[in-house]
Structure formats: structure tokens, C-alpha cells
Nucleic acid binder design. Structure first.
Ligand SMILES: [Mn+2]
Ligand SMILES: [Mn+2]
Ligand SMILES: [Zn+2]
Ligand SMILES: [Zn+2]
Lengths: 149, 149
DNA sequence: TTATTAATGAGAAAGATTATCATTTGCAAT
DNA sequence: ATTGCAAATGATAATCTTTCTCATTAATAA
């Protein structure tokens, strides 16, 4: 009966600009996504969305992330572990890669123009245009070597 | 009633060397894998294995690829599309990456020592030791530019 | 050959995602 | 403001891949 009030997020505006119908649920999910700076999966997005407006179903979250991804608003990531994870495309930072801490699972973002260029060149020299790079590295925190231990 | 006869494959020997019990099914799956130079998923491995010996179940194929992967005999790949795909670890070629043709889905392997080194350095400079690199690029075949067309 | 222990087969179960369909809602035209 | 209609939603069934269960079978060592 009571509609929650919150401002239109940048993603909600994007949604409109693409000519997508801006439903209450999409507005909520867009808000939640704009508010996130990590890589939530659908379950986590659902939890956050319900906080904002309980009148939402997990099915709609699945539908909406797919829609947003098809429209270039979201990027899907696969860090292993069975569930797809999402982040805003071209949020405040541009293209980037992910380092996963092998022990904690923590995701650390990084950019590297040299890597961008190298991948582009490799693919071009094979006679292709680069469409998508799917890259994540798993690493283990280095134990700082001591003088004597 | 009739046991199919085929030689022990390199992978079957590896299986023994690791102290794993060499069952008929594992011998068959090892044979099929040694005979493959592509990136089959479990369903495809099952089809190939049944050709060699019908007395095999898909459950055992799942179990065996997991076992082989845990023992460093197989590598699991994710090219998108929902199913895990497998290839022999350190077959005739060493570590390599994969380029997926965006239109045909064809998988093209490549090696690149510069890329190896760059990834290693990036991760090291972030304070980590590189454990695993998960990389595949999707590309579209270049249309050769014409002088006039 | 026998005993022991692990592996297998068949199917149930699990986990993630998509499909179905009756109902509701956004939105554009009255 | 109402109306009409296509599109979206909620609830849940279905699908798809992978793992689990458990009674039966088979591999290895004594
Ligand atoms: Mn940078
Ligand atoms: Mn090389
Ligand atoms: Zn990211
Ligand atoms: Zn390969």
C-alpha cells in the first residue's frame, strides 16, 4: 500500500534513456545497483532490494539483471562458485580486471593499459577483432620475506 | 560380458602413478581423454566413452573428471554456456589461453610468454603470488579491408 | 581365493536460472 | 482523470548441470 520514496538513480535514468519501461521494481533494483560498489550475485541483490521495497520477487531480479545486461547497463562476471555476479558497466571506473584472493575470496579490481593493449594485439595478430575479454586471476597474499626467520 | 580391449593410455598410467585405483571405467575415460585434442564437456566425454565401452554411466564420468582435476591430470575450463569443459593438463603443449570465435564458437588455443610474464608481474606488484589465471577472449574474424569496395 | 575397501549405476536431490500463466501495472491516447 | 493494452510481475513449475545416496559390483592386497 505504501510506496517507498527514493530518488531516481543514474541507472534508472539510463533505463529510461534506453526506452525500457521503468517499473517500480526496476527503479528499486537500479537504485540498489547504483548504490553498490562490489560484485553482488542475484541473491544478494534480492536481499538489498527487499530492504528498499519488499514488493519484489527474486524472479524479477533475475529478469532485470538479464535485461540490464542485454542493454549494456550491467556486466555479468564469473568468479567461480556457481552464481553469476554483477556490476554496473562503466560505473565510476572504466574497464578493469579482477584479482581474487585465494584464501578470503575477496575481489580486488585493477586496471592495466599494457594488458589491454597486449590482449588487443594478440587477438588482432590472430586475425580477429577483440569482442570480450574474460579474465580473472586468483592469487595468494605474499608472505613478506624476512631477513632471518 | 565382453571387455573391450585397448591399450593403456598415458593418462591411465598417470592415474596409476598417482596411486588411484585403475578401474575399467577410469581406463576408458583416460583413453578417451588421451585421444581428444579439443575441449569436450561431460556429456560429450560420456558419448565418446560409451563408444569404447557401453558399461559406463554419466555419473562416473562426472566423478572421474572431478577426480582427475583434483589430481592435476585434467584442467577444467569455462567458456560460458553453462557446462564445464575439460582438457588434459600438460598434454603435448604447455599452458595456453583460448580465443573463442564469437560467431562459430570455435576454440582456438594460443600461447604468449609476454602475457604470462605480464600477468605474473601485475599480480606480484599487488602483493600476491599468482595461483590461477582464468582467461579467455572472444573475438570476431576480421574482414580483410579492401582497397575499394 | 578371499577379504576389504573403494567405485559404480541408477536415480534422487541440490543449486542456479528460465519458463509459464494468471494478475497487475506503466504509460500513452483519449 | 479514465481507459485500454501491451508489457511486467509474482508464484511456482520446469529445466539444466552437477552432486549425492545407497545397494551392488569390482579392484587390489593378503
Ligand atoms: Mn589504469
Ligand atoms: Mn609460445
Ligand atoms: Zn569489478
Ligand atoms: Zn585448451
Amino acid at each position: 500500500m505504501k510506496e517507498p520514496t527514493f530518488p531516481d538513480s543514474p541507472l534508472a535514468d539510463l533505463c529510461r534513456e534506453r526506452g525500457l519501461k521503468l517499473t517500480g521494481q526496476r527503479r528499486t533494483i537500479a537504485f540498489v545497483l547504483s548504490d553498490s560498489d562490489d560484485h553482488p550475485d542475484v541473491e544478494e541483490l534480492y536481499r538489498r532490494a527487499v530492504e528498499v521495497d519488499p514488493r519484489i520477487s527474486i524472479a524479477t531480479v533475475y529478469r532485470t539483471v538479464r535485461l540490464f545486461e542485454e542493454n549494456g547497463i550491467l556486466q555479468r562476471r564469473d568468479f567461480g562458485g556457481g552464481r553469476a555476479r554483477y556490476e554496473v558497466a562503466d560505473g565510476d571506473h572504466g574497464d578493469h580486471y579482477h584479482l581474487i584472493d585465494a584464501d578470503s575470496g575477496k575481489v580486488i579490481e585493477f586496471e592495466n593499459p599494457e594488458l589491454d593493449a597486449l590482449l588487443d594485439n594478440i587477438v588482432r595478430e590472430m586475425g580477429y577483432d577483440l569482442v570480450t575479454t574474460r579474465l580473472s586471476v586468483v592469487g595468494r597474499r605474499k608472505t613478506k620475506p624476512r631477513g632471518n626467520g
